[in-house]
Design a protein around this nucleic acid. Structure first.
Length: 780
DNA sequence: TGCCACGCCCTTTTT
DNA sequence: GGGCGTGGCA
């Protein structure tokens, strides 16, 4: 804590009123400026905590900030502060003042998938070719308009396709309004509307409420978000924004660095502070980061420096494929943990979520606890989305997206044709699909049998809706699963997969329970609406930081965080910088560069970057050259290496001192079969003859594996004639006694390392069952 | 009319 | 690797 109190920057601005613009280089104590300022306002300036609003972009960052504030101010006071993401803050405000902008209480927040479903429906209604107008692209275009604060009528219509976007946009909005639903942009837009509407009292109420507003990662605000901030601070100008244009990584989400310039114009009396000293990282890491960001164009001039010692060189490790990479990651983590580093101080980054699976497998195979941040995985599972749709319908029957999702899940004989006719009726009569269920007489084309089924569904939902008004959310969920026949259908399936789905639904019930407990601890009423809002606004399922776990996340998710040791994986061209199907212009490349800068600057002491020769992703194999960003790292800060598998496979010119030298020679291309030998990556700043300066390939703690192989305890499974895909999972071994929640005690027969390790176990009275390993406990 | 299986296509980052 | 759409079959 002393370090924070003594921080000169934090001290200098902590008590200042009026607009404050802080350019904070990575690791210069950006968040510290905010937390210290808040602490100072509360402790010294006697500002009531509930009059302070601190806004972040991610839940993770908000959680981190709140955590720090709890440490400084104590949990009691910190609880009254408003700390949250833009969206969560707006949702909270709308819950209180939403009636003023015509929002009902049972509002539902549509996530990306829901939004896309609406767009798809609109495209069909307008009879537009889905091939020519991809729902995804349409949605992106709509969001772009919304992020700039333009409604369909305010769009500039340059060409035919803009015309189409406008049409779709308009109907999209109608659908959301009719469904009593909002998307993420709406949350902000509605609050802006509240704040800017001087004919009503609510805007003033909110403006008065927040005497001080602080914003983290200001470079990531989009036009509408900035408008909201401006409106919030209209009367008092106590707006403190902290940001770093080098870390602007949300341009694709509408973030506009120009807001920084706008800020100086809108608040001419702004005090500008530049923080250029990095307190976080070693010299080598800071220099590496500078190397990556230096070629970036249009930067606000600033020079990051550090007084810290150089420390360990940044490691660049060549690996053979994604499994080999994962093995190396595991080895480094293992080594780091053995040195006594808290696992919470270790993080593995990747560019895209799809990379996490292999890493997870490798970590699970050695029973190393980890936590995944982001990756909406859990809430994206079909059964969870189904259950949530039922819950949302229970609260808000007008939500068409949800109704259409579950009306025939489980199968009730309500097919596409029937639903087509039903939605057509709804569209014609200008009502929600739910309402149209009450007017089936107007749809003569719906067969009597189908009609009966629809009525039965409506009756069932009415019962559930009635229950939702009084019963606790956990009971509503149980009722839904029973009445809808969802549970029965899954039980009848009786496969490993259906069992897993049932377990997931149990987990959902558990998370409702958690929410109820948390809400009551915070002195707030636990409602089904509250739970649904939380689910919508919280991409990650993290149940708080339990100790002892390392962290896996995308680079985006890592922003604003720091770790002792960072493993940055997938550093190949195409992966990082990432290139999707679009050509990707220079602007996008610039953003990738800033993203790399963000990744590097998360590390305090040790940074390991890995790249692969080949990578299986999205079902195909990619060959990747090492990322161009390696070439921007100063040679003096780097240490190159390779896993055994990589150096053996490529026959690269590494000098392996540890094995007597010259072991691999430089016989390029001697690898048999496909791919061909690849030249080793050579640092552009290094003279060609300097290969001997390369470090010996580090020996992985466990032998590198060949593709198709896993981390298998060969001896133990040597006599296993079963699956060829056998691994140990979470300490589960053949013969081990395990306990399952439903089947009781059993004995492990086989372990299968699928995407998720599965165990075939024999349960007396049930027979052999295939179960996801994580649902088993070792019997004591 | 509805169900199921197969095959094709797309494949980012967050709220 | 998975979601979605199409086409064949009950």
């Amino acid at each position: 804590m002393d370090a924070e109190l003594n921080s000169p920057q934090a001290d200098a601005v902590a008590h200042i009123r009026g607009p404050l613009l802080v350019f904070a280089g990575a690791g210069s104590g950006k968040t510290r400026v905010i937390t210290f300022r808040i602490a100072n306002l509360v402790a010294r300036e006697r500002v009531p905590p509930y009059r302070i609003l601190a806004v972040t972009f991610t839940n993770k960052a908000a959680g981190e900030m709140r955590h720090r504030l709890e440490g400084i101010l104590g949990a009691e006071i910190a609880r009254d502060l408003w700390v949250g993401t833009f969206h969560a803050t707006c949702a909270k405000l709308l819950r209180r003042y939403g009636d003023a902008v015509g929002l009902e209480k049972n509002i539902i927040i549509y996530d990306g998938a829901d939004q896309k479903a609406v767009v798809t429906r609109v495209l069909r209604e307008l009879d537009l070719d889905e091939k020519r107008f991809a729902p995804r692209a349409m949605l992106a275009a709509i969001h772009k308009e919304k992020q700039e604060g333009r409604g369909p009528d305010e769009m500039s219509l340059d060409d035919y396709s803009a015309e189409m976007v406008k049409k779709v946009y308009a109907r999209y909005e109608e659908h959301l309004r009719a469904a009593n639903a909002v998307d993420f942009e709406d949350l902000i837009l509605r609050v802006v509307k509240l704040l800017e509407d001087d004919t009503r009292i609510e805007g003033e109420t909110i403006r008065r409420r927040f005497e001080f507003v602080l914003v983290d990662e200001f470079q990531d605000t989009n036009a509408v978000q900035y408008r909201m901030l401006r409106a919030l601070a209209r009367d008092h100008h106590n707006l403190c924004v902290v940001g770093d244009d080098d870390q602007s990584i949300y341009r694709w989400r509408g973030a506009d660095v120009r807001n920084i310039r706008g800020f100086k114009k809108d608040f001419p009396e702004t005090l500008v502070v530049k923080l250029e000293q990095n307190y976080r990282s070693t010299g080598h890491i800071v220099k590496a980061a500078l190397g990556v960001i230096a070629p970036s164009k249009e930067r606000e001039p600033k020079e990051l420096w550090t007084a810290n010692e150089d420390g360990l060189p940044v490691e660049m490790i060549a690996t053979k494929d994604e499994r080999d990479e994962a093995a190396h990651v595991v080895a480094v983590i293992d080594e780091t943990r053995k040195k006594g580093i808290d696992p919470r101080q270790i993080a593995v980054f990747y560019r895209i979520h799809a990379q996490s699976r292999v890493l997870e497998e490798a970590l699970r195979a050695v029973n190393m606890p980890y936590q995944i941040v982001g990756g909406t995985k859990f809430y994206e599972r079909a059964e969870i989305k189904d259950a949530l749709s039922y819950l949302r319908l229970a609260v808000n029957p007008k939500s068409d997206v949800d109704l259409l999702r579950v009306v025939n899940v489980p199968a009730r004989g309500i097919g596409a044709t029937t639903l087509d006719r039903l939605t057509t009726l709804a569209t014609l009569e200008n009502m929600s699909v739910w309402q149209s269920l009450g007017h089936l007489d107007k749809a003569g084309d719906i067969a009597a049998a189908a009609r009966k089924r629809l009525v039965a569904f409506a009756d069932m939902m009415r019962d559930i809706q009635a229950a939702a008004r009084t019963a606790p959310a956990t009971e509503v969920l149980a009722m839904i699963l029973d009445k809808s026949g969802y549970r029965t259908a899954l039980e009848a399936e009786n496969t490993a997969e259906s069992d897993a789905r049932l377990e997931n639904l149990a987990e959902l019930a558990g998370s409702i329970g958690d929410y109820e407990a948390e809400a009551s601890a915070a002195g707030e009423p636990a409602t089904l609406e509250g739970f649904l809002e939380r689910v919508s606004l919280q991409a990650d399922t993290d149940a708080g930081d339990q100790g002892g776990k390392i962290t896996l996340m995308t680079v985006h998710g890592a922003k604003g965080l720091e770790f002792d040791t960072v493993l940055l994986t997938g550093m190949e061209e195409e992966m990082f910088p990432y290139r999707g199907f679009d050509p990707g212009g220079e602007e996008e490349m610039e953003e990738e560069r800033r993203l790399a800068y963000v990744a590097i600057t998360r590390a305090r002491r040790r940074l390991v970057m890995t790249h692969t020769e080949t990578r299986q992703i999205f079902g195909t194999t990619r060959w990747g050259r090492p990322s161009r960003f390696f070439g921007d790292l100063p040679a003096a800060t780097m240490k190159q290496g390779a896993t055994r598998a990589a150096s053996a496979g490529a026959r690269v010119a590494y000098v392996d001192r540890s094995s007597g030298g010259g072991g691999y020679g430089s016989a390029y291309g001697s690898r048999g079969g496909g791919g061909g030998g690849r030249e080793p990556w050579r640092h552009p700043q290094a003279p060609a003859a300097r290969t001997e300066a390369f470090d010996a390939p580090p020996r992985p703690a466990r032998p590198a594996v060949d593709p198709g192989e896993r981390f298998v305890d060969r001896e133990f499974f040597a006599d296993d004639g079963g699956s060829d895909d056998v691994g140990s999972a979470g300490g589960l071994r053949r013969g081990a006694k395990v306990v399952h929640s439903r089947f009781g005690e059993g004995e492990v027969r086989r372990v299968e390392a699928a995407a998720e390790p599965m165990v075939v176990a024999f349960f007396p009275g049930w027979g052999e069952k295939k179960i996801l390993a994580r649902f088993l406990k070792i019997a004591s």
